[in-house]
Amino acid sequence: MSDGRWSLQKIAGDIPDQNMPLVQVSGLRKLYPLTTGLFQTSRSYIHAVDDINFTIPHGESLGLVGESGSGKTTTGKLLVRLIDPTEGQIHIYTSGGDTEIAHLRGRELKRFRRHVQMIFQDPYESLNPRRTIFDTVAEPLVVQGIGDLAERERRVAELLVWVGLIPPETFMFRYPHELSGGQRQRVAIARALVVNPTFVVADEPTSMLDVSIRTGIMHLMQELAERLGVTYLYITHDLAVARYMSDRLAVMYLGKIVEMGDTEDVLAKPLHPYTRALLSAVPIPDPAYKRGVPDIKGSIAQPINPLPRCRFYDRCPIAAKICADNDHPPLLDKGGGHQAACYLV
């Protein structure tokens, strides 16, 4: 692999300033209207993502965890602009400078996709079954108008080697159905990285894979991130996987980030009562270990026209008057960069 042809060189000099943040999100919000009645007028909205703020420094992958319906996938799609935000700003800092992408359209949006890519959960659905591996991996190059056919072939071969589909000639002209689940996810990773992005949103990229295959994909993603200078937003419901894939962790609940900090800090010393309940519900692969019962009431609801109070109020074991009388608490630093959105911690 150290052979010059396949060396790990970037297509262009695309190293952003290390001291700048890579992604800065402020006041980001996505509301989905619930239409009812004769004129399909909306009085209710699902607050899928509701006023979230965070920064991802260059090289510090962020894990985004939460239960289904917490808004983590919506957040991921907003950051690559697969969907349009209702409100808020998303700044991405790349070699081309600072771009506010929340309202980009047309050609500019297309240009921005050169820097930001996405890896999806299900490699059986995210690859077009009628296109060869070459066509699939080369597509972003075609869209971006990078290189001619010979150059694209060389670049795709290089990517296939990086993701461990070796020798690349034997994979280039095969179809997805000829590959295993793990191999398909490698193709999806190659496709995401072929245009040299600086930021990649990975939405549950290993949750469909078996354990013995999963670890290989996790290692591959980490190795490539280091060598290519890619930073991930790693979305997962699996906290144990998040521990390995992210430097920092953000916990979402009903469209809000309720806790954020260094991954090991959050796992070892969770501050928010929701994070504490979530962590204590995670099964431990040791039959001798006895977990406590998660301290939480009721079950998850949908964030439809939420009341102006803490989102976790109904389920919180320590909820007090202050939590009901005030709006949802802001995400504040509780020491050492460990943030929580709670009046009581």
Binding site: S180, G182, D210, V211, S212, I213, R214, T215, G216, M218, H219, L239, A240, V241, R243, Y244, E264, L267, L279, V282, I284, P285, D286, Y289
Partner: peptide, 22 residues
């Protein structure tokens, strides 16, 4: 399998990869 499986408790040990596929 055991050494490929992550956990949220205990020290963060390196996960091992099983080569190949079933």
């Amino acid at each position: 399998l055991m050494s490929a499986f992550p956990s949220i408790i205990g020290p963060k040990r390196a996960l091992k990869t099983l080569p190949g596929e079933p």
